[in-house]
Design a binder for these strands. Structure first.
Lengths: 154, 154
DNA sequence: CACTCTTCCTACCAACTAAGTAGGAATACT
DNA sequence: AGTATTCCTACTTAGTTGGTAGGAAGAGTG
């Protein structure tokens, strides 16, 4: 499994958005879509090149994971609570299929002869990966961070 | 998980070697390293560019999965019975680590702040993949091929 | 309306990797 | 000596990845 910079950045950005809403405004907010986070602040806090990040945020919005507002007080917010967004959702939003064999989506690798059994292996691997990433939500990751390992040194 | 052409070819070549020994000579051979398969015949039966395959076979030999002999009646053979060689062995021989985050080997991705929990996700994914590929041997794949699905049309 | 701030979108660039090729040196057998 | 094969290095080519630049479109403010 190769995790590209794009996927990595996307996850970090989503986590940062989720955390900002939690810590910044908390549960007090009443209205509809308050607590927007700007791309610039995401880039800064997670050390991601801003213009690169903007393209990623666009993908996440198109995939329906983020909503955005332009203008002076614009920014980004999650469309769903962090409990309902999984790592798999984010990965698929920016990266397409989870497993590919030479660029093709696993099930149509086209083997002949003695290699036919390989298709099953790739499908099994795909299933194993999906199980992990689809059962881990952003909320899980945030809790793990703040309770379990509060800023360990190096 | 991206399966490169290199990894794919490596697995198919190993399977072809294992099958050739099985079908060609069987258990009759007495001496040390009989039943050598030539790179050319592997390339042909699995439709792999020969000179590309040669580099892959070299990696497999260096990793201790194949032995080779030069000269007129030269070729390749497995160093261990196909029951004791797993898919994971082959993948690691040609591809290095199974999971990488932006080129780095998973455990040293270097996250700060709210993203710290991601390391655990990648380790879990790595474990899930390893479980699958390390519990599937070449012999498993050969049996699956010959019994379960003997040359299905298209 | 003018101005500012931010997202949006397109095009582009540089570096790297993957896939494949070519040509020859070493080695083994006849 | 001669031939067949593995071995090894260097190279080419095409595609992807990571990152940058520059503006157009929208949203609020005085």
């Amino acid at each position: 499994m190769y995790v590209s910079a794009r996927s990595d950045y996307a996850l970090r950005a989503m986590l940062a958005v989720a955390a900002a809403v939690r810590g910044g405004g908390g549960d007090a907010g009443g209205g509809g879509t308050s607590e927007l986070v700007k791309a610039g602040s995401l880039a800064e806090v997670q050390e991601i090149p801003l213009s690169f990040l903007q393209g990623i945020l666009l993908d996440l919005r198109r995939a329906g994971l983020l909503l955005s507002h332009r203008g002076a007080e614009g920014g980004y917010a999650l469309t769903r609570p962090p409990e309902e967004i999984t790592v798999g959702d984010v990965l698929r939003a920016v990266g397409g299929s989870l497993t590919t064999v030479r660029g093709l989506p696993a099930e149509r690798a086209g083997y002949h002869g003695v290699a036919a059994g390989l298709t099953d292996v790739w499908l099994a691997v795909h299933g194993a990966i999906a199980t992990v990433v689809d059962s881990t939500s952003l909320a899980d990751l945030l809790n793990r961070t703040t309770t379990d390992r509060a800023s360990t040194t190096s």
